[in-house]
Design a protein around this nucleic acid. Structure first.
Length: 477
RNA sequence: GGACAGGUGGCGGAGCGGUUGAACGCGCCGGUCUCGAAAACCGGUAUACCCUUCGGGGUAUCGUGGGUUCGAAUCCCACCCUGUCCGCCA
């Protein structure tokens, strides 16, 4: 969430920010409620101070009188009791007044908090303005020597390509029918070498980020409490996107939510903590199953492994000091790590600078990486897709927006507690990454060569679908 | 799932319903002593928010939320969490 003091000092900055992000939120209304709340709070506190002062006078006096009462004669008793009663009745009017203020504050507070949580972080000055994802700007592309993005797959490789759906079917790598039987649309079952390849690429990515780049390997919960979802900035705005486990309806326990990214678990780790600045920056990586309802995406990317309810992702986060330069450096570093990874896998990709409209609530800046997928995009004269870039990675820079929500701080040199900065980026998400992997490593005979970096993780399988490779154990086929 | 026990400051640990933000100990910071250190001694040592004439003033916080009361760390209720034993279990 944003700093309310900053909002009061310069509301225009946040109004412009929300407008640039195309996010509807009534900032003027929040300012009005905030003002009202503070006035009420001040009035209430004044009354309470009065009450407290009175209490401190009355308390010992009553105590003393009650002591005397015990050993008093009957006529003395009446007199003492009257005196006690008189003392007790003095703050009674204050009590009602304080209660009235309390009620009023409790009435406006939920709306105040809710609005506050919905104010987006203004985009950075150097983020290009735009109206939708179409206005994102291509920063650069990379491709291996054999690949010329100007040419078709057939021109590059010498034979026409099959889409990942076709490859999956002929090579028995995925069983969609049974997955849908069990869990409904947008589910899949990886079979045989499909599962092997999925595990191999995840393990390769996890080893790469933890061994070669020193990120601390972690396992984190994928079932979390609401505070964790709010703290990481996914709630309340993204509530519809998360699967909800209503434990409270059973009469015990609290509700839980399935996380849509390992970021939630990694960032939630240090919620409400004051970190040792000597330990910063924290660099964490996890591989976790991600769950997404894909609400509002009905009819979009319905076929294949592109948009699914459950997948696995290697995620990297950095928690660093509140320093813009350092944040920016880490952002570049995390993108660089992904570029190295994709280059090892020899997957053509492009970097996209997301425009203001595509940033979402919490980001100040976001760079997407898209891999080339021959089976996507517009169709040619023969009805074959001509290929397109498809999103596989997203690197976010958030300043203290997320850590403020999480109440994650460190003590700076002057002894002040400061909110940390946070960043996150995909290292690799599968099975989506299998789409370019399968499509680009396919051979003319319909087999798929295992990318060399994945060989150590493939138990000897070098080529999927060739006679030389061990039979891919597709059950029930 | 059953039966107990318990949640207090960075940590340990007190706390008759009344100047208790909270004794005491440890830790930490500063000082005295010392050639220096240790010990000893002295002093200091929470966070958040609000107001401010920038000197300071105020409120809240003893797991969380309600309630009782003139007044709650202390009494009542609900929830959350932790520990121990039993049962079950990948």
């Amino acid at each position: 969430m944003i700093d309310l003091k900053q909002l009061r000092d310069d509301p225009q900055r946040f109004i412009d920010g929300a407008r640039a992000k195309k996010i509807e939120v009534d900032i003027h209304h929040l300012l009005r409620i905030d003002e009202e709340r503070r006035t009420l709070l001040a009035d209430q506190e004044r009354k309470r101070a009065e009450q407290k002062k009175l209490s401190k006078e009355i308390g010992p006096a009553i105590g003393k009188l009650k002591g005397q009462l015990k050993s008093a004669s009957d006529e003395e008793k009446d007199r003492l009791e009257a005196k006690i009663h008189e003392l007790e009745s003095r703050p009674i009017a204050l009590k009602a007044e304080i209660h009235a203020f309390e009620q009023k504050i409790a009435q406006i507070e939920p709306e105040w908090k809710d609005l506050w949580l919905q104010i987006p972080q203004p985009p950075d000055e150097d983020v290009p303005k735009g109206d939708s994802a179409d206005d994102n700007i291509e920063l650069r592309t990379w491709q291996p020597d054999w690949f010329d993005p100007q040419k078709s797959f057939a021109e590059n490789k010498g034979f026409p390509h099959r889409t990942h759906l076709e490859l999956i079917r002929t090579l028995n790598l995925v069983d969609f029918e049974r997955a849908v039987k069990m869990a409904g649309t947008r589910h899949y079952v990886l079979t045989g070498d499909g599962m092997r390849l999925h595990q191999a690429v995840l393990r390769f990515a996890f080893d790469f980020i933890t061994q070669e780049h020193g990120f601390t390997p972690m396992s984190v919960p994928v079932i979390v409490r609401e505070e964790c979802m709010v703290g990481t900035g996914f709630f309340p705005a993204g509530r519809d996107q998360a699967y909800h486990i209503e434990e409270s309806r059973r009469g015990t326990g609290t509700d839980l939510f399935l996380t849509g990214t390992g970021e939630v678990g990694l960032m939630g780790l240090h919620q409400d903590e004051i970190l040792d600045p000597e330990q910063l920056p924290l660099q964490y990586a996890t591989v976790s199953t991600c769950f997404r309802r894909e609400a509002g995406a009905a009819g979009k990317d319905t076929a294949g492994l592109y948009r699914i309810h459950q997948f696995d992702k290697v995620e990297q986060v950095v928690i660093c000091r509140a320093d813009e330069e350092e944040s920016r450096r880490w952002h570049q570093k995390m993108i660089d790590i992904v570029e190295q990874l994709l280059q090892k896998l020899e997957l053509p990709y492009r970097l996209l600078q997301c425009c203001t409209a595509d940033l979402g609530l919490k980001n100040a800046d976001m760079i997407d990486i898209e891999c080339w997928m021959p089976g996507r995009g517009e169709e040619d004269a023969e009805g074959r897709p001509t290929g397109a870039y498809g999103e596989t990675h997203s690197a976010s820079r958030l300043y203290d927006y997320q850590c403020r929500r999480l109440n994650m701080r460190y003590r700076d040199q002057d002894g002040r507690n400061v909110f940390c900065h946070s960043l996150n980026n995909t290292v690799l998400a599968s099975p989506r990454i299998l789409i370019p992997l399968l499509e680009l490593y396919q051979n003319e005979d319909g087999s798929v060569t295992v990318p060399p970096p994945l060989l150590p993780y493939m138990n000897g399988v070098e080529r999927i679908g060739s006679v030389a490779a061990p039979a891919s154990a597709a059950p029930g086929r």
